[in-house]
């Protein structure tokens, strides 16, 4: 890859551990904590508690949280419920599209261990094997107060630097990729896009 040389020794990747960035790290953390934008991708049944959260009664905009359609501009990904293999493919693609640093909040019992669908043939049992979860909220379905609590928890973790799912995903990419390929089969990214073109 000759083009890569233009980026210098960084290989096109910004290393947040560089000294220049460390100086401003507290400011960055504060800014990240106070402006969490959510990807508007409500998977599963928990999506129904998003409108109450976003409107008058629970109003999460006072914490700087806002739903945003584009994954490129979002920081927080809410997995609002059970995940089927078909959705998990889209979740992984959307998660990889998001810019670092990104945080992932699993909502409900189902992403933790399958919940009520523990014996279902079409529900992923442990989401943490495929993408890194920062905070998980138990319950079916969690009340908006519980979700708010989870969001406060993620804010605290951003401040202390514990919310490092995006770093884990980068460092252990081989592990996550292996699990994903084991579930979906090799080359699923290319196959999924091509599958539908025959119908059109």
């Amino acid at each position: 890859m000759d083009e890569r040389k233009d980026f210098g020794e960084n290989d096109g990747v910004i290393h947040y551990e560089l000294q220049e960035f460390k100086l401003f790290e507290p400011l960055f953390k504060w800014a990240r904590k106070k402006s969490l934008w959510i990807v508007a991708f409500c998977t599963g049944c928990g999506g129904i508690e998003m409108p109450p959260l976003a409107t008058a009664r629970y109003d999460f905009e006072r914490f700087g949280i806002m739903p945003n359609p584009a994954p490129r501009m979002a920081d927080l990904f809410l997995i609002t419920g059970y995940v089927t293999p078909k959705t998990l493919k889209r979740i992984i693609i959307t998660y990889e599209m998001m810019q670092d640093p990104k945080y992932l909040l699993a909502h409900g019992s189902c992403p933790i261990n399958g919940g009520v669908y523990w014996d279902s043939y079409n529900v992923v049992k442990q989401l943490d094997k495929y993408i890194p979860i920062d905070v998980a909220i138990a319950g079916c379905m969690p009340r908006p107060e519980a979700v708010m609590d989870g969001i406060m928890e993620i804010m605290r973790k951003i401040e202390t630097g514990e919310a490092d799912g995006w770093k884990r995903y980068r460092e252990n990419y081989e592990y996550y990729r292996r699990n994903q390929d084991k579930l979906f089969g090799e080359g699923w990214r290319e196959k999924e896009a091509k599958r539908w073109l025959a119908w059109i």
């Binding site: 399958g114 523990w118 014996d119 049992k125 442990q126």
Partner: peptide
């Protein structure tokens, strides 16, 4: 389910 999800399947 046991064949596909293996270790995750713990009840």
């Amino acid at each position: 389910v046991k064949a596909i999800y293996g270790d995750d399947f713990d009840r």
